[in-house]
């Protein structure tokens, strides 16, 4: 009697795990399908590029302020902390290298992607979710206008285009922030700061790889935001939950992808 009870409990738990697993996989499939359709129907977002431009304005330009301000502070903190450690080894000139490599390789793409998910990703999810909840997508479909071509694809490309630009600006502004702390404030030699940096930052291995990372993050973050909005239950609660999920899933995906990409780039 006891044993059969225990068995049912275990079976129920397993069923729960299986159910969730199937649901997740199913959602992944739906997301992949949306991704595929967004690519297939993206012709219009290039033919009528002003649709995409408009979305670049809302995702890219609108994120500019938060990106620039955060980058500035991140760069300054990096320089301060780096100086603290480096001066113990008498190599405070290497501070430029430290700031530049940290920003170009990791912090630029990753922090930009995290901020992007919070600033632009949530906006995309909420907008699409509300368009769905208020039947705007349905209305579009009934007008014989494909919502994937008209709504999803331009936002997708806008995100993919904006992210590397934002990450590049982040890295550059961060380095300027680091420069401000290192050179005028701490008194590291101006020439050494830049020349050490130039000697140790490789264009192909560091800068281009950083750009590749941010491009991949751009695809992931935008697609997650679009999918969560598109898939949100058409209620106030559904949209708010989807918005939260966008931030959580995007952040985790970016961090996991970063590890994978970094390990691939190390091998090469």
């Amino acid at each position: 009697m006891m044993q059969s009870n225990l068995l049912t409990i275990i079976a129920n738990k397993l069923r729960g795990v299986g159910h969730r697993m199937i649901e997740r996989t199913w959602r992944l499939g739906v997301g992949a399908r949306l991704f595929g359709l967004a690519i297939v129907y993206s012709g219009e977002s290039f033919k009528r590029f002003n649709l995409t431009l408009r979305e670049i304005y809302f995702t890219g330009v609108m994120s500019l302020l938060i990106i620039v301000v955060s980058a500035f502070f991140v760069g300054m903190v990096l320089a301060l902390q780096g100086y603290n450690t480096l001066q113990k080894y008498g190599s405070s000139e290497a501070i430029g290298v430290l700031v530049a490599l940290a920003l170009v390789r990791e912090l630029g793409p990753v922090v930009t992607a995290l901020l992007f998910a919070g600033r632009a990703g949530t906006a995309i999810t909420a907008e699409i979710g509300l368009m769905k909840a208020t039947e705007q997508l349905s209305a579009m479909e009934m007008m014989a206008v494909n919502p994937i071509a008209r709504v999803i694809a331009p936002r997708f490309w806008a995100g993919v285009i904006s992210m590397p630009i934002l990450a590049t600006i982040f890295s550059m502004v961060g380095i300027l922030g680091g420069y401000l702390v290192a050179v005028p404030l701490i008194g590291v030699d101006d020439g050494a700061f830049w020349s050490q940096m130039q000697a140790n930052v490789d264009f192909r291995l560091d800068i281009v790889n950083g750009l590749i990372k941010s491009l991949v993050f751009g695809v992931a973050c935008t697609m997650i935001a679009l999918f969560e909005g598109f898939d949100a239950p058409p209620t106030a609660e559904g949209v708010s939950r989807a918005t939260t999920r966008t931030v959580v899933i995007s952040s985790l995906t970016v961090l996991a992808l970063d590890f994978v990409l970094t390990s691939f780039m190390m091998v090469v």
Partner: peptide, 13 residues
Amino acid sequence: AALLGLAMKVGNL
């Protein structure tokens, strides 16, 4: 501009 800055001033391009 940022990319150019990275390439010229920061990187070893």
